[in-house]
């Protein structure tokens, strides 16, 4: 959380739109899962995603290495984001099929994600910049968390 610089409206809207993309992604991957199961769904999405990423990179001429010193130094573990993502699918599938169901899994996952992100900002985990939340940031965090909890626990069915 950056208290040095006001958040630009564009950042706010982009992040909100990314959440909308996530809803669509989960929906379509869920449909795939209905036909072939969670593993098939995630495997296929990663496969089509790999091809789509290559096409996007070619079209947009995205650079494979950033300029300057930072472009040369890539720690090996920075390539493991996909491993963490693939593992998420397996772990989530297991929890959803337990008495927690979808709503419980979502609510607990949300908590885990937010607490981790605060820790990540606080200590600058995995080589990212450190950030300190302001009181106002924490109030905003509380409102979004409360709203999400209400939707997950009482709004879904």
């Amino acid at each position: 959380m950056n208290s040095d610089r006001p958040m630009k409206l564009m950042d706010l809207l982009a992040a909100f739109a990314a959440g909308g993309l996530l809803t669509l992604m989960v929906h379509f991957n869920g449909e795939l899962g209905r036909y072939g199961g969670a593993l098939f769904s995630s495997w296929t999405a990663h496969g089509t995603g790999t091809i789509a990423a290559l096409i996007f990179i070619l079209i947009l001429r995205s650079r494979w290495r950033a300029e300057g010193n930072i472009g040369l130094a890539i720690p090996w573990w920075a390539y493991l984001g996909g491993l963490s993502g693939a593992l998420t699918v397996m772990v989530t599938t297991s929890a959803v099929n337990s008495p927690l169901a979808l709503s419980g899994t979502l609510a607990l996952g949300l908590g885990g994600q937010v607490v981790f992100s605060l820790a990540a900002d606080h200590w600058g985990l995995f080589g990212m910049p450190k950030r300190r939340p302001s009181l106002r940031d924490l109030c905003a965090l509380g409102l979004v968390m409360a709203g999400s909890a209400v939707i997950i626990l009482f709004g879904l069915g």
């Binding site: 950042d11 959440g19 981790f116 940031d137």
Partner: peptide
């Protein structure tokens, strides 16, 4: 915008679009 802002805004967008 940092990890916490990113996580919260994406979750917010996901919830509203999910509704």
């Amino acid at each position: 915008i940092g990890a916490a802002n990113t996580a919260l805004l994406i979750v917010g967008g996901q919830m509203v679009s999910g509704v």
